[in-house]
Design a protein around this nucleic acid. Structure first.
Lengths: 214, 214
DNA sequence: CTCTATATTGAACGGATATTCAATAGCGGT
DNA sequence: ACCGCTATTGAATATCCGTTCAATATAGAG
């Protein structure tokens, strides 16, 4: 695999990602990708062997790109709180390709349920995110809270991202969800009193709607 | 459209939904659906006219089913807080078909980005959910908070749901995300002091990790 | 029974798809 | 100039897809 072939491969992968974002997984076809890359369909087979292999390579490329971005932001952050903030911000996509990435990711999510090769990539990416979150959470919250909090934060990030894809990126602009995540962490810091639960939510004064002070 | 034809249509729709959940949108084909329904492929065309129409009918069926379930739970709830709780619980899928529904919904999400007919159904469903949330939120929080809070709650519900589909339903069992949503509402009740934001989160004492008292 | 409408099917068609293959072109090394 | 290797392609192939259509079965209306 020469230097030239590596850059050629990346060129084809980029065309595959664009096709996925624009046309979706159902119309993800050799003709579409090869037209966009200005090559013949046979060339893609020559480089990747099969359509599934191309799809997996495209998936890996997007995941790696996302991870590179997050890692770069992690390096700039000092302390566990700043690192979690960096992780969340990186995944909420304050970059130019956020919307395309979200659309592609949605395609992958749907198909990873049925293609084991894609499922493995998705699981690895999710584990890396969870592992990063847990590393810093361990320094902030009680040990028993680390795992469920990491799961919850990751779920919230995905939810915001999903809606951004569906609604054209507008959801990313209001930072309420971002603030919510950081609130969530702040209220569960080590040694902090338990936050009001759904049960106590039910018992507040219905007339004034006032929360009971802790 | 006789009674018999209506039940026949529903039978075909059910087969379509099962196929979607098991094989995914890429392998969603007349052959697969007709085999599962024990009819010929031509019959599906006779009833629905085209593959896209069948897909749309399946989408509508799942959305209607979900809405029926949520509505039933809404009727049992007294007061705005209980109604929001019922809405969230209904969508977090405490029914037997939750996992299949989540998988099907994920297929729809991916394809709705590229098929306008599906996008309309998805948007209508989302609007109904937001409208329900906002109706009750108006009685609980300040007017300016209603819209963003409804958006955020809906995003959180979708995120939990998405992860349930990816991880095989296990995420639905821990109720942390559910509690988080209700905490979130409780802390933003009318007249309550503003909750600590991400900014104030940055200014807390780094040594102790203690949140500043408001 | 007869007529008509509906339900249902198998076969056929045209087009698209992923993949294979033989062939050409170019280029670096010797 | 020759060789070997890679890049690249157009055409061929077999398969599968959505859809059409003519034909048959069925059942209810008159």
């Amino acid at each position: 695999m020469t230097d030239l072939s590596a850059s050629r491969r990346q060129h084809l992968i980029d065309a595959a990602v664009s096709t996925l974002a624009e046309d979706g997984i159902v119309e993800f076809t050799f003709n579409k990708v090869s037209q966009r890359a200005d090559v013949s369909a046979a060339l893609i087979v020559h480089y990747f062997g099969s359509k599934d292999a191309l799809l997996e390579a495209a998936f890996r490329s997007v995941a790696r790109q996302l991870n590179t971005y997050a890692t770069a932001r992690l390096r700039l952050a000092a302390g566990p709180r700043a690192r979690i903030e960096a992780l969340v911000d990186a995944h909420l996509g304050h970059n130019d390709y956020a919307e395309e990435t979200a659309r592609v990711w949605l395609s992958f999510w749907g198909e990873a349920l049925h293609v084991p090769q894609l499922a493995r990539v998705q699981r690895a990416h999710q584990q890396r995110m969870l592992s990063n979150l847990k590393f810093d959470l361990r320094q902030l919250v009680d040990a028993s809270d680390v795992q469920p909090m990491a799961d919850t934060i990751a779920a919230m990030v995905d939810g915001v991202w999903l809606r951004a894809a569906m609604n054209g990126g507008s959801a990313l602009q209001n930072g309420l969800a971002r603030d919510l995540i950081f609130d969530f962490i702040a209220r569960n810091l080590k040694g902090a009193p338990p936050s009001p639960t759904a049960t106590s939510f039910d018992t507040i004064n219905p007339a004034t709607g006032q929360v009971l002070a802790t």
